[in-house]
Nucleic acid binder design. Structure first.
Length: 589
RNA sequence: GCCGAAAUAGCUCAACUGGUAGAGCAACUGAUUUGUAAUCAGUAGGUUGUGGGUUCAAGUCCUACUUUCGGCACCA
């Protein structure tokens, strides 16, 4: 999808459209005051103070109509450069503009205004020549937005819109929005009975239905096998811990606001765990370790609970009960690079299997100014951050750095994946931690007989199974590759009376060979049953008529394809097995 | 959490400004025995998210809560 912000021409067009929006709002709501109206990836918005008035969705068409009217009048857009004192004078009744102007430095930038008809706005520009050029736009949505993005501030009203050069481009964008809705994992999840929620269970607490659970189980098995081959040891640990456990780890001080409240049992205080590091630390600590034993890799598909803000909860993507594909690697300092490399290698390997090609590595560093979030040990931070840079450089991996995105205990490498539609999601993470091993007093015996503190690498490849599933549903539009599909093969006789027995025989044969089969021998027309198999996106449909029955063959049809292929049941099974083994992804997603 | 919108049958939606809930699909029953995306007929399905309130009368108005949706803020 096009990124407006990266296109110079469209940026100017959209920013001009934001002014047009402001002018229309001013006409309809004369008391309106304007904050900023920037161009974003998906068009533009304007943050507006309307006093007591609150916009609803019904107001957008009215504003849009007024915009069209102004655009039709075709006033020229005139630039004017003014001094700071003049600007302050001109906008003296507008606290928002004063706020902007006061932070401007005359020596560094020119202060300019743009006027179109009866409307003038402080703006850097540039703009199109005339409002007449703004023809193909649409207001998309309105909402509240905190002034300056700070939740302590008052809420302004934000209107989003987008503008294109042609009607065709605009329509294409509107179609794209429809496409997003069609791919929404919540919609597909309901249609294909993957998961559900219930208000008695609570917000952000999805229930995985058999079809969804089957997919998740495949994912769990898949990553478990990969990890096992890489020397990971898998454990089970409880979903609760004492408050003292999290005080020891330091999470209590940093994140207790985001944990479910304390449960008091007898004299002890428990919390639902928001992460698994402390439990795994204690498992490491359960025995003595020689430098020869390291690295020790402890993995778990671990359920965690986080008290996500009510407004943040969304489908399987953002939940309050999640299952992490978590592991903690306990390594010697000299092993950091090698282990980190292996984790990055695993990430790339998994992405390949899932056909994920569009991703970016983000090196999340601490903000040295933020002494509240990050523990104070410059040397430790610098060392950790430099180690990560060296590893990435040595692997020839492109990455960008993000200040202030590190965990409180150390820097991390996050992988941002660009989905087929919608904004980027962070799936994998790999974090370096010099802090928790110290807090838990972990050690190993070095070759010289002295106790040393190991370094911990926290990593999650899928991130959480919940979020990954949400992501992948949208990637494949619910048409899962055969190895993940809840039902892999639909078997249907043309007529149950005539080929029903043969169909049953074929279905049993496949089922006995671990293929997930659904026999559809209902007394419905073939077209009806076939349609159902297609709409539920079952990868293979077998059609068995007299021809197949007499020749001892099967005819199969792939999801989304019209043509049929006829082979023996053994050949078909071989083909299926191979496809499942290869974890082939249908790349027409 | 904040700003706004919403919640009606399993799903998608309807019911004019208050007058006692209806359709399609799905389900079930019967007939049909079917060759590549919807055979026909019938049946059943609802304390309109929950609790209060206003009213002769509430799906519709008010109110609290729960959940969902769109953003904002947040995301160890």
């Amino acid at each position: 999808m096009i990124n407006i912000k990266e296109d110079e021409k469209l940026s100017v067009l959209n920013h001009s459209c934001a002014h047009l929006l402001a002018q229309a709002v001013k006409h309809l709501y004369p008391k309106a005051l304007f904050w900023v109206g920037p161009v974003i990836e998906d068009g533009f918005y304007y943050d507006i103070d309307l006093g007591d008035i609150t916009l609803t969705d019904e107001d957008l068409p009215k504003i849009e109509k007024e915009m069209k009217k102004i655009a039709k009048d075709g006033k020229r857009i005139v630039r004017e450069e003014i001094s700071k004192s003049e600007a302050l004078e001109r906008f003296k009744n507008d606290p928002y503009k004063i706020d902007l102007i006061e932070r401007m430095n005359e020596d560094e930038e020119v202060i300019s205004c743009y006027t179109q008809g009866d409307f003038t706005d402080l703006c850097r520009g540039p703009h199109v020549e005339s409002v007449k050029e703004l023809k193909h736009f649409k207001l998309i949505k309105s909402s509240g937005a905190y002034f300056k993005g700070d939740s302590k501030n008052k809420v302004l009203q934000r209107i989003y819109g987008i503008c294109f050069e042609t009607e065709e481009d605009l329509n294409k964008y509107l179609e794209y929005l429809e496409e997003c809705k069609m791919r929404d994992h919540r919609k597909i999840g309901r249609e294909q009975e993957l998961f559900m929620s219930h208000n008695l269970v609570g917000s952000g607490m999805p229930l995985w239905l058999p079809n969804g659970a089957l997919i998740r189980k495949q994912l769990e098995n898949y990553i478990y096998d990969k990890e096992r081959r890489l020397g990971y040891l898998h454990v089970y640990t409880p979903c609760v811990g004492t408050v003292d456990l999290y005080k020891t780890s330091g999470h209590w001080d940093h994140y207790k606001e985001n944990m479910f409240p304390v449960m008091k049992v007898d004299e002890e205080e428990f919390v639902l765990r928001p992460m698994n590091c402390p439990h795994h630390m204690l498992i490491y600590k359960n025995s003595l370790h020689s430098y020869r034993d390291l690295p020790i890799r402890i993995g778990e598909a671990a359920t965690d609970f986080r008290y996500e803000a009510s407004g943040a909860v969304k489908g399987l993507e953002r939940v309050r009960c999640m299952c992490q594909n978590d592991a903690h690697l306990f390594v010697r300092p000299d092993q950091i690079g090698e282990e980190f490399k292996k984790v990055v290698g695993l990430i790339l390997d998994v992405y390949k299997d899932f056909g994920i090609t569009n991703y970016k590595f983000r090196l999340s560093l601490r903000d040295p100014e933020d002494t509240e979030k990050y523990f104070d040990d410059d040397q430790m931070w610098n060392e950790a951050e430099n180690t990560l840079r060296q590893v990435l450089d040595s692997m020839d991996i492109d990455y960008f750095e993000a200040i202030g995105e590190a965990a409180f205990y150390g820097p991390k490498l996050d992988v941002e994946v660009k989905p087929a539609v919608g904004p980027e999601v962070t799936l994998s993470t790999c974090q370096l931690d010099f802090l928790l091993p110290r807090r838990f007093d972990l050690s190993y015996i070095a070759s010289n007989g002295e106790k040393q503190v190991p370094v911990v690498i926290h990593r999650a490849i899928f991130g959480t199974f919940d979020r990954f599933t949400a992501f992948f549903i949208e990637e494949c539009k619910g048409a899962f590759p055969t190895w993940l599909a809840p039902t892999q093969v639909a078997v249907m006789p043309v007529s149950a009376e005539h080929q029903g027995e043969y169909a049953k025989e074929i279905a049993d044969f496949l089922s006995d060979n671990d293929i997930r089969v659904k026999l559809d021998d209902r007394n419905e027309k073939l077209g009806y049953r076939l349609r159902e198999a297609q709409t539920s996106k079952i990868p293979y449909t077998l059609i068995l008529g007299d021809n197949e029955k007499n020749d001892k063959t099967i005819s199969y049809r792939l999801y989304g394809k019209k043509e049929t292929t006829t082979v023996t049941k053994e050949e078909f099974l071989k083909l299926l097995k191979q496809e499942i083994e290869n974890k082939a992804c249908n790349k027409e997603m």
